[in-house]
Design a protein around this nucleic acid. Structure first.
Lengths: 340, 340
DNA sequence: TCGAGGACGGAATGCGCTTTCCGGTCTCAC
DNA sequence: GTGAGACCGGAAAGCGCATTCCGTCCTCGA
């Protein structure tokens, strides 16, 4: 039992294919009321469902939106995806999803697959990598735009894509300032490899503001940009805390460049009996939903993740493009984990 | 600058459209090596990208998989989605995503939209609702299957869909048994409205096992099936705890039918100074990733969420269908939150 | 009353690709 | 040497729909 085609509807209604099409699929030109109702009735009786593939081929627009994230199970990305999905629905677009497992080359594959499916636009979410690693996907996006698609990136610039920029530098600087104001002076940076641009932006800006404000970055620890990376940093951070005690210094304040790293770090510290904020102070970045119920409550920079997803989709579906307010706010949130 | 078409490739290679198609798009019949290389070269020079829409129309298979979840930003769903996405990638399928915001009627819309896009299969993830609320989407799925698609549901049966069933009853019963073995006797159920089938399955099975094991369910609290629902239950649970103290009874053990509810509950209890597990014991269900770093560590039933996503996709893409091992394991995990 | 212009339905073309035929060549067994 | 059969490339017929173009009829103004 195959799906009814538009031709079947037209036959049943005793009209031409063209008329049926005009009635059912939002044409500017509407046939007379009598025919309209006949066609609608026939469609209902046959349970007609338009074939979006055929429609896309004929119209050369698919109404599809490609969304590339680095890990859909990570709350950072799933929050952005939720916003993007909701916005897409409001704009009558469907979302094609790809999750790359943080592999830059998988990003390229995903964009290529989206291009094959002739998505109207593609949104790439997540940190950029080194120029070399970004090159293939940048080229792919350039080709995609050249053939009429629109590219949007949430993160750092990539090829010709419109950028929705998380306030990494501003947020990190404000966080540093706030922590300095609280009296912290000795900081540890928990960052990621230099190819992870988001980590670099946050760590760099934080360090700069710390120095400018009279504080000191006593060490930079680089680990994987993930919860487990934070966890892996725990032992080194504990050493630093012990050294501080031995030298009669204030407990160090760790700035983890993402909340998930901060959470991992705190987990390890707890495992080995290092108290937060007693022995070490910890701050993160993003204010992921998970954080709301974390103990201790973690100081961080709030970023409107869902809104960023919405903004990206708005830019992706807008006719002219660049006119979306592609900048978002942020807010430093000091909580228990950095209490002195 | 429009995309090159297959015809352009064929012209450039000096072969027919048919030959170019056979070379580039995985036909069983491969032309001679000379032509193959000519076609490949031409395609590379032109930057040819197949038009998946046209391919789908001609083949009447899209290679698309529709995934319906109730909230992509909820770790339960995003974990399942991650597994589904990974499996889809391995099977060479693309994922169309819809997030319904827990609205049954939005599920219907999503499935209808997927049907319009002629997805090869659709996977619906999440609790079923009342029969009345499920009816529209069930009918939609029936029509979808009748026209050659495959439907899979992760949760409870729905229309003709293949079911990947979370071990709700078994897990809840085992959890009850384990808690009884730990010496707990007085239980409170934190559940959701009866239309939420997952909550009912878990709560019902738990209560049964408790009674059978000589324990007692002293109260059933029904709230929204979410973190905020758990939070909202905090005050009532606190009252029950105080009453227990007043009566000289053991602190009650709350079984929250999902981890997110448990987390919300614990958050509220903390806010009002009720200790877990000191004054109230709390257990959840699912073992969402978030839980790993929660304080106190929460007792729960581990469910292989990613694997369920993978299984669902496996069922969706398999030729014959029902032969996937559509049942998954579970494991009771007792942690600090239920310590006596 | 007559002609111009507009509204309206339908035939036909094409979107880009797959796949079935079809005719021609080549190979091999007898 | 010859016929059967395998193999191979290409022509052409769709897949389901949007849309242009065309012919007809109706309306309205002069």
């Amino acid at each position: 039992m195959a799906r009814a085609r538009l031709q079947d509807v037209a036959d049943r209604a005793g009209v031409s294919l063209a008329t049926a099409s005009r009635v059912l699929n939002g044409s500017a030109r509407q046939p007379g009321p009598e025919l309209v109702s006949r066609v609608r009735a026939a469609a209902a009786e046959l349970g007609y469902v338009v074939n979006a593939q055929a429609q896309a081929l004929a119209r050369s627009r698919t109404g599809l939106l490609g969304l590339v994230v680095q890990d859909i199970s990570d709350p950072y990305f799933s929050s952005i995806a939720a916003g993007a999905q909701a916005a897409a629905r409001e704009h009558g677009r469907m979302v094609l999803l790809a999750s790359t497992d943080r592999d830059p080359s998988a990003e390229h594959d995903a964009v290529a697959a989206f291009a094959a499916h002739r998505v109207d636009a593609v949104v790439v979410v997540g940190t950029r990598w080194s120029a070399e690693e970004d090159a293939p996907v940048a080229a792919e996006l350039a080709a995609f735009e050249a053939s009429g698609g629109r590219a949007v990136v949430v993160g750092q610039p990539l090829g010709p894509a419109v950028v929705v920029r998380p306030p990494n530098a501003e947020g990190a600087a404000d966080l540093a300032t706030a922590l300095l104001a609280e009296g912290h002076r000795r900081f540890v940076l928990l960052s990621a490899a230099s190819r992870v641009r988001t980590a670099q932006e946050r760590a760099g800006s934080f360090a700069e503001a710390v120095t400018a404000g009279g504080g000191e970055v006593v060490e930079v620890v680089e680990r994987e940009f993930s919860r487990d990376g934070g966890y892996a940093a725990g032992d080194r951070v504990a050493e630093l805390a012990r050294a501080a005690v031995a030298d009669g210094l204030d407990a160090p304040c760790v700035f983890a460049v993402s909340d998930v790293m901060a959470i991992g770090l705190i987990a390890r510290l707890r495992d080995i009996g290092v108290g937060v904020p007693r022995d070490v102070r910890v701050a993160g970045f993003d204010d992921i939903p998970t954080l709301h119920d974390h103990v201790p409550a973690v100081s961080t920079v709030h970023i409107p993740l869902e809104e960023m997803g919405r903004l990206a989709v708005a830019a992706a579906v807008s006719e002219d493009g660049a006119d979306v307010g592609a900048s978002v706010g942020h807010e430093v949130v000091l909580r228990e984990s950095t209490a002195r």
